[in-house]
Computed example of a mutant assay.
Amino acid sequence: MLKKLFAITILSSTLAIVGCQSTPSTSANMTATNLTLLQNTTWVATKIGKSTIVYNNDAPNRASLQFDEATHRVTGTDGCNRLTGAYKAGKDTLELEQIASTRMACMNNDNLDQQFNEALAKVTHYQVFNRTLKLLDRHGNPVLEFESVIQPR
């Protein structure tokens, strides 16, 4: 009787270990999918907080970001100045580090550059749905919203 109980325990343990090893991690898959959607895309800002950004047709720069998977660098523009820095991203977390920008005189942009940079400083999380990227603060409130740009071939 004791031998049967021992054999069943060993068999159950073995099956549990093998089963756990062969089950793919949905968390790891979700992280990879979110990172793939976030990275290597040009994102053009469409909202700051709840306010929609309206660009003039002749505007030379549109606020935008690109997250480079290979270098873990973020680059872009705040609508006037170019910016660059490092980033760390997880399944839904986003940490922007050492953001530096040029300091050009930004005329006639309704303080878009200042508002964009203030919102960017609050970012701790992100969400990607289809062609929309939302950058969120620590409370889950959207601070910036972007649409992906389809690159010409």
Rank of each mutant, 00 (worst) to 15 (best):
Ala89Cys: 04
Lys50His: 06
Phe116Tyr: 10
Asn141Phe: 08
Ala63Val: 07
Gly49Leu: 13
Tyr55His: 06
Leu35Val: 11
Asn109Leu: 12
Ala28Lys: 12
Asn117Gln: 06
Ala70Cys: 06
Gly85Phe: 04
Glu145Pro: 13
Phe67Arg: 02
Tyr55Lys: 00
Ala45Ile: 10
Cys20His: 09
Gln151Gly: 01
Thr75Arg: 09
Thr46His: 04
Arg153Glu: 07
Met1Glu: 03
Lys88Phe: 06
Thr23Leu: 15
Thr46Trp: 01
Ala86Thr: 12
Gln21Cys: 07
Ala89Gln: 14
Ala86Asn: 15
His139Ala: 14
Gln66Lys: 14
His72Trp: 04
Ser22His: 04
Asp137Glu: 02
Phe67Lys: 11
Ile99Cys: 03
Asp68Cys: 02
Pro60Ile: 05
Leu133Trp: 09
Glu145Ile: 05
Gln21Ile: 08
Met30Lys: 13
Leu2Asn: 08
Gly49Met: 07
Asn117Asp: 01
Met1Phe: 01
Val123Tyr: 09
Cys20Thr: 12
Asn57Tyr: 01
Asp58Val: 11
Asn34Phe: 00
Asp68Gln: 12
Asp110His: 11
Ala59Gly: 02
Thr132Glu: 14
Gln39Glu: 14
Leu15Arg: 02
Ser22Gln: 11
Gln66Pro: 00
Thr132Ala: 05
Ile17Pro: 06
Lys50Ala: 08
Pro142Lys: 11
Leu144Pro: 11
Lys134Arg: 12
Thr46Asp: 09
Ala16Gly: 14
Tyr87Leu: 02
